[in-house]
Write a protein that binds this DNA or RNA. Structure first.
Lengths: 369, 369
DNA sequence: CGATTATCTGAATCTAAAG
DNA sequence: CCTTTAGATTCAGATAATC
């Protein structure tokens, strides 16, 4: 993480790591060093606009969200609030940092519009499909069985945001991970409750959701910001996964609860994910020739019964009239615009055809690159 | 349907039923009698903003949407276009009429915001989860595997919109219908093609999607409006379900194609029939880790006295020098080309070795999948 | 002819590093 | 900034081709 400073947009202030800042999101965001955050997760007020109490068919009252923090005069007020905190988060993020926001149909369209207007570049929307949503008691609509997440990078021109593609592919049994995530809501032991057994926070998110978000879009040691910290699910998961967190929460009681909760978390010992070693150093084909893994004059084969090529002293190859790099010649003989020569060309061994890529991997291991 | 007139807001003009109006949406909407429409479905341009060509790993070119009708100067231009057609649709709708709009993350947030601003009252957002989405070829994002629908009533004060709750509950094996719909994209015989075998329209929607929409939110004899008619999927399904349609399409060739398509439709005699639902959902190994059934750091055993592996945070495992999914590593340690990690790897319990497959079955049962 | 294998395609904001 | 080059990257389902 030594390159954090190089990525900052402005002056660096002392980082407020692994703490909960008590205060409203807007002013607290101003205390965070610009360009210091790798990933942000925000679970803002949903602006639910509930009017009357809702009762189940058995006449018990549904304990909905009716807190003061979820009341806005109108859409314009909600938009203004949204744009303000989005701007603050964007300032705190590194240019290649990403933001996740979760919401429902009550607010997510306004949030998404504001994100685009503020300059965020959307990478995906993700739907959290709930295995156990609350039913629709009145039977007047579809069961609201999902919530929407928006994932966006702070600066549209940056393509070097963190996305642990291989890790998520391994997670998903070797199929690339999709935008629909099936997860249960937060219940049972995981749900924080007061001494009276009543849920401590009305909208506590499941740790599994944050777990997947941070596995996908952050690295160990990264700084994770949550401007609506609540009871600290983001901090708990960040700590368990070896990431730093910065939480902002206006309710001191929630902040206190979150701190205690996070203190109990035992971080995982092994934080390795697939491909966590970082990008291996590039090994040019010439190095294989130089190291004697392939000798000048050796013949390469383009797959079973494919075209053949001859290795030359400088690591170029020739096949018929074509000469050049393994990639260029591979593309030429197949009449394609490009080609990965490492996987296309093979050498003949006793055991059969061996791709150059295998020889490269062996050399890389021996040279510890 | 004798109460149509009583529900109209303005003067009644002769209805333009079961026709395609050729022209741009804005002016054609003005020709529709105000307050005459029961349900509208809109599939507006998504404003995809594609720049360069995209190639698959096998170097074939992806046939993306590059039509002129999907090009807008900026978000402001798109917003203006959106607000204009939304106002026109709202005028055409009965006060208790509802509007469905489909979109992707490129445009749906802007559309949702505009709908709320224009006075529509959102009833649900619905996610169309695709069984067979196009993959993400470069591995830089999550597979974009869903699209979003917004369902809203024209007048927020009206609660007498059509929602066939019992019908949909029967459709869904006596469970109330949820907001996540699993459906394949439109391919095969259903996809309209020219004589050259090339798809007639780049964004044809599956009839199953419209079928569910009209089953849910309309009655036989209702008037269904589609301001972006394309090749007439809405009209085809409306006719089959005994509803009237009004289509608007600016491209005469599409309009002609749609008319011919709809003419071939044979309306159902029994309007209550429903289709079958999909297969059980796959549970990836990562979900077991996420759910706490297996913890990072736990040891897996490959059968009695077999090799051992260590579970990691992202659902990958490591055994010796090998890392990857349970299947990949299982294959590697056994020197096979493939392996079913679910039956090969076990966890040690008091009662002996338990295959991962058993844990998966338990989780599936609890999540009711 | 049936079974197996190869090919094609779908609303896509789809690279990274070196020079 | 731009240009060039290396080389990494796909899932489900329908259809066509081959055995």
């Amino acid at each position: 993480m030594s390159d954090h400073r190089a990525e900052t947009r402005g002056a660096s202030r002392p980082p407020l790591l692994d703490q909960v800042l008590v205060g409203d999101a807007l002013s607290a965001l101003g205390r965070i060093a610009p360009g210091s955050v790798d990933v942000a997760f925000a679970d803002p007020p949903y602006n639910l606009q509930l009017s009357d109490a809702l009762y189940r068919p058995n006449q018990t009252k549904v304990d909905g969200v009716s807190a003061e923090w979820d009341r806005f005069a109108d859409f314009a007020a909600y938009d203004q609030f949204t744009r303000a905190w989005l701007a603050g988060v964007r300032r705190a993020l590194k240019p290649n940092g990403t933001l996740w926001v979760i919401g429902s149909y009550h607010n997510i369209f306004r949030v998404g519009t504001a994100m685009q207007d503020e300059g965020f570049w959307i990478l995906n929307d993700v739907v959290w499909v709930k295995t156990n949503p609350m039913p629709n008691f009145r039977g007047r609509r579809f069961t609201n069985a999902h919530e929407t997440l928006i994932w966006a990078v702070a600066d549209a021109s940056r393509t070097d945001y963190t996305f642990n593609y291989k890790s998520l592919k391994a997670f998903n049994d070797d199929l690339q991970h999709r935008s629909d995530w099936l997860l249960p809501i937060c219940t049972g032991q995981e749900r924080l409750r007061g001494d009276d057994g009543v849920k401590a926070h009305p909208t506590q998110k499941p740790e599994a959701l944050l777990n997947r978000i941070l596995l996908a879009s952050s690295k160990p040691g990264d700084v994770v910001l949550d401007p609506f910290f609540g009871t600290g699910t983001t901090g708990a998961v960040a700590r368990r996964l070896g990431r730093h967190f910065v939480g902002i929460e206006r309710d001191p009681a929630y902040a206190e609860l979150a701190q205690r909760r996070i203190a109990r978390i035992v971080p995982h010992e092994d934080l390795d994910q697939v491909g966590a070693e970082g990008k291996p150093k590039r090994i040019p084909f010439g190095l294989l020739v130089e190291a004697g893994r392939v000798a000048p004059g050796d013949e390469l084969v383009g797959g079973r019964n494919g075209p053949r090529a001859r290795v030359r002293v400088d690591g170029s190859i020739r096949s018929g009239d074509y000469e050049g790099s393994i990639h260029k010649v591979g593309a030429a003989v197949r009449n394609l615009s490009s080609c990965n020569g490492w996987t296309y060309w093979h050498v003949e061994a006793d055991t059969g055809l061996v791709p150059l890529d295998v020889l490269r991997t062996e050399l890389r291991r021996e040279l510890r690159l």
